[in-house]
Write a protein that binds this DNA or RNA. Structure first.
Lengths: 253, 253
DNA sequence: CAGTAACGCGTATGTCATACGCAGTAGAGG
DNA sequence: CCTCTACTGCGTATGACATACGCGTTACTG
């Protein structure tokens, strides 16, 4: 009495095996009126229009005109739906850059493309992380990152670490942007107003005696200028690439 | 009919103003049987022993032997409790390094100290981020980071960006570690076993035709070695510091 | 000593994920 | 052609959860 047929023997939840293209439709029973694909699409659309918080099993089902519990025939749990939403939203990585592109340019493109994905789906960053990527598109992005590093001559372990490092940076920076966007939406202010309000609050609270360096930073006006929204991203990416370059040059030098 | 006295005029929620030392105890009414401090302590202890998911208002109240709704006399909402827990857990930053310490060593110490905090309180990384730091200890850590960068001669804006960058890295890397720890706890495996299982799953799913670079990385054995748990952290930090160093040298050179 | 603000808390509401079981459906084997 | 059975959709129920509201009580102020 096997609970579910495990088509691939992967031990993966059924919805995920479906994402990898394993697990063909069984030939018995009524024709399914739903599909994992439709469910995930509805959930993604909902997250896009009303935020991740609006994505509840009941709400997704209502959107599809079915009952809540129907969904559980297709996804094992809500976390599984999250994973599938993630994979759907990140999509395929961009085409590889023209041959002969240097690793630095290639990695920068990769980072920018990933950032664009996060900005198109800000809710992605609100999904609680549960583990390493194990969906087709996640792996494809990883692949693209590794490929971009091919010209470096770094060993495999170092390439993995660099991809992890840059990917983490992009995610983190996008998270800050998403927070800012959320604050803007909540209060109806512009980015400058949000930052200015934050600076004002801090000036009020943070005693310059106790926090002299912070006070200096606040005084300098570096916090309340009309900041280029991409500035932090570009700054961080340049530092990161410079750091990797030092390693690359030391390795093959 | 003012809803609550806003002692500082900061517009901050009451629990937060308490954290900053504003808002003295009002001289009316019965003596409070609780305090924000005791509530936060109980919540932190609960998170430490049973994870952040165990921290519900009802559960914290039970731990304190009071009713659920009592807590709302001290914290305005659960998110506020989260913020206070965060501030309590990160605590004060370490003492500044001896004078004459170089910026690179200073920043590395700062990063390591921050990482130690996250590892002592893994639940910290599960708290949904809601905005920029506005609690005393967060600002103190920021202060310490800025101070470490004083010898660089970078301008204030660049110092802020570097602190943001390194802080984000630490947080991100700690998050990965926390995921690994969670997986270990869930399955009762060692870190090596978890990584090996992940590698096996990926080898099973990821077609080497479609993901050649990933396949190469898997083949190389870089994934399943008995990895030094600090390796990724050290690697990333070195890259980051190298990148910053390039900027510093270019600036004052 | 009266007035009042702050206290603790009981009750109630609405939302959520999800376990369980039932009835109807459609393809497979006889 | 008919029955058997795996699989479908879904109604119901459970137990957590955050939190609004309002009541009785307390202890300081004028």
């Amino acid at each position: 009495m096997r609970p579910v047929a495990d088509a691939g023997g992967t031990g993966l939840p059924p919805g995920l095996e479906a994402a990898w293209g394993l697990r063909e439709r069984p030939a018995k029973g009524p024709r399914p009126g739903l599909s994992v694909h439709r469910i995930v699409d509805a959930a993604v659309a909902l997250a896009a229009s009303e935020g991740l918080a609006a994505v509840s099993m009941g709400r997704v089902a209502k959107e599809l005109g079915v009952s809540t519990m129907s969904l559980y025939r297709y996804v094992g749990a809500k976390d599984e739906l999250y994973v599938l939403m993630q994979d759907a939203a990140i999509g395929a990585p961009p085409d590889p850059p023209p041959p002969g592109t240097g690793w630095r340019e290639g990695l920068a493109r990769w980072a920018r493309a990933q950032r664009a994905v996060f900005q198109r789906h800000l809710w992605l960053l609100r999904i609680p992380v549960s583990g390493p990527p194990a969906t087709p598109n996640s792996v494809a992005w990883w692949e693209a990152g590794m490929e971009a590093l091919a010209p470096t001559g770094l060993d495999e372990g170092a390439k993995i670490s660099v991809v992890l490092l840059v990917g983490g940076f992009v995610r983190n920076e996008a998270g800050l942007t998403a927070d800012l966007a959320a604050a803007m939406k909540a209060t109806g202010e512009t980015p400058e107003q949000v930052m200015a309000r934050y600076g004002r609050t801090l000036r009020l609270l943070a005693d310059p005696q106790r926090y002299p360096a912070v006070a200096r930073a606040l005084e300098s006006g570096a916090m309340d200028g009309p900041d280029d929204p991409d500035h932090e991203f570009r700054f961080g990416l340049e530092r990161l690439l410079d750091g990797v370059q030092v390693l690359v040059e030391r390795t093959d030098g």
